[in-house]
Design a protein around this nucleic acid. Structure first.
Lengths: 264, 264
DNA sequence: GCCTAGGTCCCGTCA
DNA sequence: TGACGGGGCCTAGGC
């Protein structure tokens, strides 16, 4: 067993040692990994039962819990962050309880064999950046409205309409009001119906013609059908190109800044 | 370092050892846990960049990959099952690539410090059972149609309507066609619109009146408004009660079976 | 391959 | 707190 402030690793710990290590880790908000044989009960919005088998359990410093089997992306049982963790011994069993309230949900893990238990203080300040999201598409269209069509002029974005938000709100070259609904992947029926709802609401409240444009990389056949029958338009917009446009504009901004400095 | 067929644990392995262990694990379809300092790139449907920090990386026998930070339920980067894994050394860096095709997506993990690396052959045949799901609600309603209303008679379930599926299709006590849409949690606008779409399609194709009933534990205020204005009904149905009904019916079945035996 | 719908979805955001 | 929509959603099931 290795033990310092940062890392604790126990191979085949007995139950009492495991309970001690876990309580220590809960107090110090350490991240925990356990590999061993366990069964799991869950009661909350639904219920579930997982029969015994060997799994990986991760418990994080914010109270998130994940039970992973040997296959698949998803945990078989889990608890999102913010729950209270307890470890106790009962007979020859290590019992871990993860309790969340509102709604009350309880995950109980019963280990009858612990292959290994490890706790860490993870140092992680690294920034995470995501590109080509719907938000980036919106920003790119606002900076380069011709991505929608020539003469399009955005007026507002994330505009509240009844309950919901119009992605971009503007006018076309002929002064007609335009509503743009953005999707970062194949637009389906829901996207069309969403757009239609906004337009109906706006038409009634403004008592004017309102154009609807669905901006997405692709549109499904059915959705296109519905779109056309409702008199709405589709405009192909690629999220990656939007991301590149933003990057270029950012670079230009910085360049202009330095140019200004040089000239000054 | 401990090493047998089932478990391999390496504390602070050097990069060459890590590469060896990983390739061994990929070949033998072992589950892998690495804790260390890394940065991560992702390119695919979107792109992302994660700056260096200490994280937990899990690689499963089916090619699923998870990169977990010290907080939160969700992995910051991941790859679902079915991707190809590679490990290689480049300078003082352990590089792990997880590649998926259709659509092509690549996650690259660069470790510059490995606190510990562990590989397992997890034995897990335990069955997983989920209760109070939408599927259990459907089965309960089929066995006990009065959960919807007196005189309701189901005819079919998961019935294909254009593209989409009607949860339950049947007739009411007056012989009118009924479509039931089930939701296991608070029904919102989408649920109402979904039901409305099915009804519109069925009305046109059957050229008859069609009733729509939304069955859920609760309905949001807005959704109820829309529902009523469309002339549809809401019926409160609790997923847990459905689960209990099923359990009782199952028990009765077993009891009847033994009674039959005793009498025979 | 596309498309639809569920999920203990989780998560952020806003009334 | 409820409600709504996004997500690299993932996953299962149909066609």
């Amino acid at each position: 067993m290795h033990n310092d402030d940062r890392i604790v690793i126990c191979e085949s710990p007995d139950i009492d040692e495991a309970v001690d290590r876990l309580n220590e880790a809960f107090n110090e908000k350490r991240t925990i990994i356990i590999v061993g044989r366990c069964r799991v009960d869950y009661h909350g919005r639904a219920s579930s039962k997982l029969e015994p088998g060997e799994r990986i359990v991760i418990m994080k410093e914010d109270g998130a819990v994940l039970v992973h089997r040997s296959k698949g992306y998803e945990p078989v049982n889990w608890q999102p962050s913010g729950c209270i963790l307890q470890a106790l011994r009962e007979e020859d069993c290590l019992i871990i309880k993860a309790i969340k309230r509102a709604p009350r949900e309880v995950v109980t893990i019963f280990f009858d064999r612990i292959h290994f238990l490890s706790t860490f203080k993870l140092m992680d300040e690294g920034e995470f950046s995501l590109y080509a999201s719907e938000e980036e598409m919106r920003r790119a269209i606002l900076m380069e409205p011709s991505l929608i069509e020539e003469g399009f002029k955005p007026i507002d974005y994330e505009r509240r309409v009844k309950p919901g938000f119009v992605d971009i709100y503007g006018v076309d070259k002929d002064g007609r009001i335009v509503v743009v609904e953005i999707k970062r992947r194949t637009a389906g029926k829901e996207a069309v119906l969403q757009l239609e709802r906004y337009i109906e609401t706006l038409k009634r409240s403004l008592n004017k013609e309102v154009r609807g444009i669905l901006a997405a990389p692709v549109i499904s056949r059915d959705a296109r059908q519905t779109l056309l029958s409702l008199g709405l338009d589709f405009r192909r917009v690629d999220p990656k190109k939007c991301s590149e446009i933003l990057k270029r504009k950012e670079e230009k901004k910085i360049l202009d800044f330095f140019r200004h400095f040089t000239n000054a």
